[in-house]
Amino acid sequence: MIVESGVVVSAAADGRFLVETRRRSACGSCSVSSGCGTSVIGKITGGKRNIVTVLSPLTLAPGDEVELGLAEGALISGSLIVYGVPLLGLLLGMIVYAVLLGASAGDGAAIVCGLGGLAIGMAAARHFAHAVRRDPRYQPVVLRRL
C-alpha cells in the first residue's frame, strides 16, 4: 500500500471526501541531495498541492489530518494503461504502416499512421480512466486520522 498524508478540505457525498495533499520528492531522504541536480529541480517544482477524492468509513471534518492509502496494484495497472496503451498504439500504427503501405509510401504516411495509432491508444486509455473513475479498487482510501 502506498501511503500519503493529507488534510480534509470538504465532505462530498456517499462517504467521499476531498483531501489536499502536498507533492514531495524522494530527494529529502537522500544523503547527496544538496549536490544533486534532481534535488534542485525537485525543490523548484515540489510542494504543489493536489486535491483528491478519497473514500472513508470514518466521519471526517474539514481540517482533519488523515493518512491515505492506495493499493500498489491499482497504481501499477493504471500506469501501464495510461502510458503503455498509447505507446502500444503508436507502435501498432507504425507496424500497420510497414505492413500495409511499405516503405514506398514515404515519411509523411509513417507519421500519420504512427500518430493515428497514438490517438487510438490515448482514446482507449481515456475510456479506461472513465470506466474506473468510481471503482473503489482504484480509489485512495483514508487509513486513519492523524
Rank of each mutant, 00 (worst) to 15 (best):
M1H: 06
V3A: 08
V3P: 08
E4H: 07
G6H: 00
V7C: 03
V7Q: 03
V8Q: 00
V8A: 04
V9P: 01
S10H: 03
S10E: 15
S10R: 06
A13F: 06
G15N: 09
R16H: 00
F17T: 06
V19M: 09
E20F: 05
T21I: 10
R22G: 02
R23Q: 13
R23F: 03
A26S: 13
A26W: 09
C27W: 05
V32C: 11
S34Y: 11
S34H: 14
G35I: 03
C36T: 12
C36G: 04
G37N: 06
G37R: 01
G37H: 02
G37V: 04
G37C: 02
T38I: 07
T38M: 11
T38H: 09
S39Y: 00
S39R: 00
V40R: 15
I41E: 14
G42Q: 11
G42E: 09
G42D: 15
K43P: 05
K43T: 11
I44W: 14
I44S: 13
G46E: 11
G46M: 08
K48C: 07
N50M: 04
V52N: 12
V54Q: 07
L55Y: 15
L55Q: 09
S56L: 06
T59Y: 10
T59K: 11
L60A: 13
P62T: 13
P62I: 07
D64E: 06
E65C: 09
V66T: 07
G69R: 05
E72Q: 08
G73V: 02
S77D: 01
S79V: 03
L80Y: 04
I81D: 15
V82E: 03
V82Q: 00
V82K: 02
Y83R: 01
G84P: 08
P86M: 11
P86F: 00
P86T: 06
G89T: 00
G89K: 03
L91F: 15
L92V: 14
L92P: 03
M94F: 15
M94R: 12
I95D: 10
V96Y: 01
V96Q: 08
Y97C: 08
A98D: 14
A98F: 11
L100N: 08
L101I: 10
L101V: 10
G102E: 10
A103D: 14
A103P: 08
S104P: 13
S104E: 15
A105L: 14
A105V: 10
A109S: 14
A109P: 06
A110C: 12
I111V: 15
I111C: 04
V112P: 00
C113F: 13
G114M: 03
L118W: 03
L118K: 10
A119S: 05
A119M: 09
I120Y: 04
M122G: 04
A123Y: 09
A124Q: 01
H127V: 14
F128P: 05
F128A: 14
A129W: 02
H130D: 11
A131E: 01
A131V: 03
V132D: 06
R134M: 10
D135A: 15
P136W: 02
R137Q: 01
R137S: 05
Y138D: 00
Y138G: 06
P140H: 07
V141P: 01
V142K: 00
R144S: 04
R145G: 07
R145Q: 07
R145T: 01
L146S: 13
